[in-house]
Design a protein around this nucleic acid. Sequence first.
DNA 1: GTCTATATCCGGATAGAC
DNA 2: GTCTATCCGGATATAGAC
Lengths: 173, 173
Amino acid sequence: MARNSSDTKERLLDSFETLLDEHGAAGATLDAVAAKAGVSKGGLLYHFGSKAELVKGSLERLGRLVVEDVEEMKAAGDRLHSYYLETSAEVGTPLDRSLIAAGRLAQENEEAKTALRKTREAWFDVLNEHLGDPHLAMTVQLIGDGMYFNQNFGLSQDDALAHVKNVLARLGL
Amino acid sequence: MARNSSDTKERLLDSFETLLDEHGAAGATLDAVAAKAGVSKGGLLYHFGSKAELVKGSLERLGRLVVEDVEEMKAAGDRLHSYYLETSAEVGTPLDRSLIAAGRLAQENEEAKTALRKTREAWFDVLNEHLGDPHLAMTVQLIGDGMYFNQNFGLSQDDALAHVKNVLARLGL
DNA sequence: GTCTATATCCGGATAGAC
DNA sequence: GTCTATCCGGATATAGAC
């Protein structure tokens, strides 16, 4: 395994984010990340020279995933807001994992906070453009934030989405 | 200062939560908490025998504050849901500080997660009883969660509340 | 490109003086 | 009730072999 450099780097980022998601910032030590990715700590530090670089790598990948996601939102046409809410409740996608990881990091890392802020701005812009109504766009975004927040604490979201859709229908959405 | 035991304990909890809020879990070390409260680490450990006890103390205090808050919600009468959303966006109250602190802890602490879950359940129950509509109650709660979430990342909420109120008005609230 | 060994530091916790 | 001194374990990071 691990034929080339970029494969291993991706695997290291996957391991880092998974540990962040499952055990929080304290659980995502260099040792743990390396072990999960199947390399030694020295091996990890060859690819990412410090923990800060590992964080940076993860946030950069998040940025790329968000760009892709915005494209998919746009591709959803008039179901754009539904697509947004459905994916807000989603668990286990690469984007979701990166996003949760960033949330963990944001607790004590200014760059992660900034990354989350930019992500929110990007989503607000498409929502607002699509709905043509800042009030509604902000409300839909806050609901999405709420679902993301609950996911963070391992709360099941199954009925939440149904409840929300019921209410959005009353608003003509 | 620090005449009696319970004064110091409260001050230690205040310091703990403030450090949690401002610097995340990693910043809330026993040394830092003690220093901020104006005692030594030994002094802190007299009151709370371990870090786990400090966490427990903070979550217990949160529980008490939530009970009080629910009472105040009920006292708001037919403005109950407005009261809920306004206080969700609030910053700097003891309840708010405790709640953010619990959010930081919840990242890697199961008891904190449970405390947050229970808090949400308590709020949902009053909202649902008041609105008599689970769909609406869940939606309002998610919006509150969203505002809390943004507060966590230091985003200004000024216009968010106004946007939300505009939309709720369309729903007859 | 990955490994081992090691230096250094820091946080939690104990012991015991005051 | 609070303080100082100290121990222990764990985390980041460096050096250098393979």
